[in-house]
Computed example of a mutant assay.
Amino acid sequence: MEEDQKDNPPRSAPVRLAYRVSYLGSRFFGSQMQASERTVEGEFVEACRRLSLFDDWRKAGFQFAGRTDRGVHSRGQVAAFTTREPERAKSVINTQLPPDCWCTGYAEVSPQFHPRFDARSRTYRYYFSDMPENTGAMDRAAGQFPGTHNFSNFARIEDKNPYRTILSARVKEEDGFLFFEVTAESFLWHQVRCMATALLTVGNGGDEDTVSRLLVSEAERSLQPAPAEGLILWDTDCGIEWQPLPSDERSRMFLDHLRRHHSLMETICRKMQP
């Protein structure tokens, strides 16, 4: 009996972990797992398998707080799974993730924790590529969003309830860039990007009442969503106090390379202007 115990040491009790996840969406086909495409969930699951944190992602209860479309980025996605190797998961998860995806925090959570259903709110930021003429009008128009409204004119509804509750919304300039920030309990497909389109119309000379009119008018053809690359899932509030995690050196080098590349391209474009 003693020899059997030596050959088969008792396994540690399972622990449920949550992670705050950042990623650059440009090279992903969205966050949701797909069989034949590169996705954030797919890369995360494969990293966990390489670390032997679990074998079957379903049995481990692997979940993300929500989905993001192709090209959309994240600063505050939340992932969760259950593992018998929590110390390994905490210490080396970033070494196995690709450089365009990394965890910035972790927490031990209850066995029942579900990042989607336990999320209190989600915050998105949409960064505009150009500076519109009237940013003040955009901020005033954004102030019409808070409250519970029918967003049929701002989203792809399909079979969903079109009503959503917006907790806060603003347009602000920071570091030379203009962004729209909105917090809600939940969002519909393309909702934030369509809201950004409406605000951009206002900023470029449109009627400030555009937003209020679309919120109360009969469902029309929904607005064209703004380009995905401007959208960031900024935060998901699950009531968690995160323990910080340093990003892997590969991710830091990857981000530095992107910054240098974009700086170079800006310089080239200026030199090529007539």
Rank of each mutant, 00 (worst) to 15 (best):
P146G: 05
R58P: 01
N8S: 03
V211T: 05
L258W: 07
A107L: 10
K6E: 12
D235G: 07
P98A: 13
D175F: 00
D118I: 06
E229S: 12
D56W: 06
G143R: 08
A228H: 06
T104D: 09
C238W: 08
L199V: 10
L51S: 10
C103A: 14
A13I: 07
R213S: 15
E108Q: 11
D237E: 14
M131V: 09
T201F: 07
P146H: 10
Q224K: 15
L167N: 01
V202L: 04
G71M: 01
A228M: 04
D7T: 03
R27C: 15
R252H: 01
C48E: 08
M272N: 15
H114R: 09
H190P: 00
L255M: 06
R140Q: 05
Q63W: 01
Y19T: 09
F145P: 04
R252T: 01
L223Q: 05
S217K: 15
M253C: 01
P146Y: 09
S52N: 12
A65R: 03
A196S: 07
I240N: 12
S212I: 11
L255R: 03
E46W: 07
G176D: 05
I240G: 11
E220W: 12
L178V: 15
L215T: 10
F177A: 02
Q63S: 08
G205D: 03
Y19M: 10
A226K: 09
K160T: 09
F81M: 07
Q32E: 15
A142F: 02
A65I: 00
R38V: 13
N204H: 07
L264C: 05
S52F: 04
R88Y: 02
D56N: 14
S121K: 15
W102L: 03
M253E: 08
Q63G: 00
V15Q: 05
S222Y: 14
D209V: 01
S263C: 02
A65M: 04
F179M: 04
E158G: 08
A184N: 03
S110R: 13
G136W: 03
D237C: 12
Y126R: 11
A169V: 13
Q96N: 11
M138G: 12
R50Q: 12
E2K: 15
G143K: 04
G230L: 10
D248L: 05
A119R: 08
R252N: 01
M265P: 00
F81A: 07
I232A: 06
E133D: 10
S251A: 14
V211I: 13
Q77M: 10
V45R: 13
R259N: 08
N161S: 06
N150W: 10
P98D: 12
Y163I: 05
G105V: 03
C238K: 11
A35N: 12
E229K: 11
A65T: 01
G66P: 07
G71H: 01
F29V: 11
D55A: 00
V192F: 03
G230R: 11
A47S: 14
